[in-house]
C-alpha cells in the first residue's frame, strides 16, 4: 500500500458567501478500491465532488490524479484524463436515444473533427461502427439493450441510473465518482447497481461514491471517508468507523461539536 494513491485531495477549502462549505478536507483514494464518501447533510460532500471534477474552483488546496495536479483544469480536460463524475440527480441527454447517450461519451472521436464531419464521413465510419458495437455490449451488460432506440427521457428512474453508469463505462474511465447513485431507488435495484459497481471494480475501475445508505456502503465499499463540516473527520473500514464515537456523534449532531467549529 506504499504506492501513490490514484486520487489525492489535499486541504481543500471553499466558501460560498459566508458559508464555509469545505474547510480543509483531505483524503486519498487507492487504485482498485470502492471508496465511500459519507457525512451528514451539509458536510460538503457534493462541493468536494464538484472541486475534484473541476466544476467548482477551490479557494485553497490541491487535487492530484495519477500523481499529476488537476486542480484548476477545465472539467472536460479532467474527464479526458480518465476521471469521470456523475451527478446527484440522473441527468441523461433526454431528447437523444439511449444508444446515442452512450455514443457521446468516448473522447477524441474522429468524426468530432469538423473537416471529417463535413467532407470525409468515410474516415470515421469504421470507428463509429466499432463504438456502436461496444455501446451495444455495454447496454446488454446493464440490461438496457431493448431500450437502445428509445429516447432517454422515456426511461424509468431506475433505468436512468443504469444509463448513467453505462454512459460512464463507455468513456473508459480510470476512476468514476458517483454522487449518490442509490438515492431514491428501490432495494432490488440498489443491490443490482451494487453488483454492477463490484463487477466494474473487477474490470479495473476505481470508485469514489457519495452515499447515505450505510448498509450499501458496508456491503460494497472497501474504505470509507467521513466528512463533517467540510473537514475529514475519520477514515477506515465501516466496522472501524462504527466504533468511532466522533463519527456516530457527527451523524447525530451534524458534526458541529466534534469538528470544533460551533457557532
Amino acid at each position: 500500500m506504499d504506492a501513490t494513491p490514484l486520487l489525492e485531495v489535499d486541504g481543500i477549502k471553499k466558501a460560498f458567501g459566508g458559508v464555509q462549505a469545505v474547510d480543509g478536507a483531505a483524503f486519498s483514494v487507492d487504485e482498485g478500491t470502492v471508496t465511500a464518501l459519507i457525512g451528514p447533510n451539509g458536510a460538503g460532500k457534493s462541493t468536494v465532488v464538484g472541486v475534484i471534477g473541476g466544476a467548482i474552483a477551490p479557494d485553497e488546496g490541491r487535487v492530484s490524479f495519477r500523481g499529476e495536479e488537476i486542480t484548476s483544469l477545465a472539467p472536460h480536460r479532467i474527464a479526458r484524463r480518465g476521471l469521470i463524475r456523475t451527478f446527484q440527480i440522473s441527468r441523461e441527454y433526454p431528447a437523444m436515444t439511449v444508444l446515442e447517450n452512450l455514443m457521446v461519451s468516448p473522447s477524441n472521436q474522429r468524426g468530432e473533427k469538423l473537416a471529417n464531419a463535413l467532407f470525409a464521413h468515410r474516415s470515421y465510419r469504421n470507428q463509429e461502427r466499432q463504438l456502436a458495437v461496444k455501446a451495444l455490449d455495454v447496454l446488454e451488460d446493464f440490461g438496457l439493450y431493448a431500450m437502445r432506440d428509445e429516447y432517454a427521457r422515456n426511461l424509468s428512474g431506475g433505468q436512468k441510473r443504469l444509463l448513467e453508469l453505462a454512459r460512464s463505462v463507455m468513456a473508459d474511465p480510470t476512476m468514476l465518482i458517483l454522487d449518490e447513485p442509490m438515492a431514491g431507488i428501490n432495494p432490488a435495484l440498489i443491490s443490482h447497481i451494487g453488483e454492477h459497481i463490484l463487477r466494474l471494480r473487477e474490470a479495473g475501475i476505481t470508485f469514489l461514491m457519495v452515499e447515505h445508505n450505510l448498509e450499501v456502503v458496508e456491503r460494497i465499499c472497501d474504505h470509507v471517508i467521513v466528512l463533517a463540516v467540510g473537514r475529514t473527520l475519520a477514515q477506515g473500514t465501516m466496522s472501524e468507523l462504527r466504533a468511532n464515537e466522533a463519527v456516530v456523534a457527527a451523524y447525530l449532531t451534524g458534526g458541529i461539536v466534534d469538528a470544533g467549529t460551533a457557532h
Binding site: G53, A55, A74, P75, H76, A79, R80, I84, R85, T86, F87, R91, E92, Y93, P94, A95, M96, V104, S105, S107, R167, S168, A171
Partner: peptide
C-alpha cells in the same frame, strides 16, 4: 441537452 454533463464527459463544450 445538458451542458454541464457533456463537459463532465470530456466534451469541450
Amino acid at each position: 441537452e445538458d451542458l454541464e454533463v457533456a463537459e463532465a464527459y470530456g466534451k469541450n463544450t
